[in-house]
Design a protein around this nucleic acid. Structure first.
Lengths: 212, 212
DNA sequence: ACTTGATTCAAACGAACGTTTGAATTATTG
DNA sequence: CAATAATTCAAACGTTCGTTTGAATCAAGT
């Protein structure tokens, strides 16, 4: 019953995801969204109350299962490692793989959602501050603890910094792949996702392990 | 004569920089800008013709001297190295130092401008596509050539990827330092810029040199 | 001092925005 | 089938936006 009753909601969320990723938050009007979703203009306010709430709903729809997948992967790697520290590469894989796999699944938002994440951090709309805090800052702590066990020679703040740098390298690389395609004159593309994942993990693992 | 004649233009540019960095492109109205700059509303259209042109002018004002400083630094390091390849750390320093030094100079835009750069990449307004191409993609080629000389064991596409990853790590780290401050519960801050620069260069140099 | 060009100003323009309304339509339930 | 709830719809609301206008003010040159 729920899938037919909320067909309108899903259509709105899909259209919002696509249009906001393409044009930004404020530049995407409810009229453009409802036209693309082929629903009435007032449907947004009826189902989501307000535009800001629609944006938050669109983001959390992808964000929640994504973070759950990342934590589940980290759990699995920690179980596999018994009481040994998890390899840095596996921690990074738990962080990155669920996001990379979004690219291959257009039904799950595809590359649009990665652009939205970057947009979330850059566009400082007040209404999504708590969302960034919940979904970014808090979830990072689990990975920070795992990293400290795997890299005990690093100080607490150094570990925070390097995790921040690794996250930035990844997010920028995949969310703004257009810049890479431009500067490489089309020689670098996001086609083979497994190869891309390995490349990024390799780069970040070396950075995390750097002695100095 | 120019400084008094264009005092209005500068006031508008400063206010635009501050407000757009705080609220985003579309969310910042000309009325808010002119009110903050204490000039008349019509002054924007008189001096910059249109809002989009104002945004481009605001960005290029900082972007041009920044890129000139980066290329000048790279030139200097290449001269210092005679015919030897430049150390990876120096290439990264030429890339990053002029940007980090912005943070310490609030008169040059401070941290606002770094947020604007991230916003430029995330918010895909059509009118600043050519700016991103000119100032990001094209200027990267010089650094790509320098890297290829210093890391001849890397393939052409691998070098492009790693330069992209290093740029992303840096830009994310400094532009979204708020996230780091949050997740580290305030233990990591952007106070000592020289130490931050060294940290980022160290991380990225290790990633660039990674053998695999 | 007068003229010419550059700049500032208050006021208004039409367009687009998010949101609300109340009736029409559809679905669900007793 | 009747009644009740949920959803859709066209239309309009008030607000804010970027831009334009034409007169007022200022600066500079002869």
């Amino acid at each position: 019953m729920a899938e037919r009753l909320h067909a309108t909601k899903v259509a709105i969320l899909n259209a919002t995801e696509r249009l906001v990723a393409a044009h930004g938050f404020e530049a995407t009007s409810l009229r453009a969204i409802t036209a693309a979703a082929k629903v009435n203009l007032a449907a947004v306010n009826y189902h989501f109350a307000t535009k800001d709430a629609l944006i938050v709903a669109m983001l959390t729809r992808r964000m929640k299962p994504l973070n759950e997948a990342r934590l589940a992967l980290l759990d699995q790697f920690e179980t596999d490692a018994r009481d040994e520290p998890v390899a840095v590469e596996r921690i990074l894989e738990a962080l990155f793989r669920p996001m990379v796999e979004l690219i291959t699944q257009p039904s799950k938002g595809g590359r649009n959602f990665l652009r939205l994440l970057a947009l979330c951090l850059a566009e400082p709309g007040a209404y999504l501050k708590p969302l960034v805090q919940k979904e970014f800052a808090e979830k990072t702590r689990r990975f920070h603890r795992a990293l400290r066990r795997s890299l005990p020679q690093l100080s607490d703040v150094e570990t925070h910094w390097r995790l921040h740098l690794a996250s930035g390298a990844f997010l920028h690389a995949v969310a703004h792949a257009q810049v890479l395609e431009l500067s490489s004159a089309g020689r670098c593309r996001l086609t083979n996702c497994e190869a891309v994942l390995e490349r990024i993990i390799n780069f970040c693992a070396a950075g995390l392990r750097s002695p100095a």
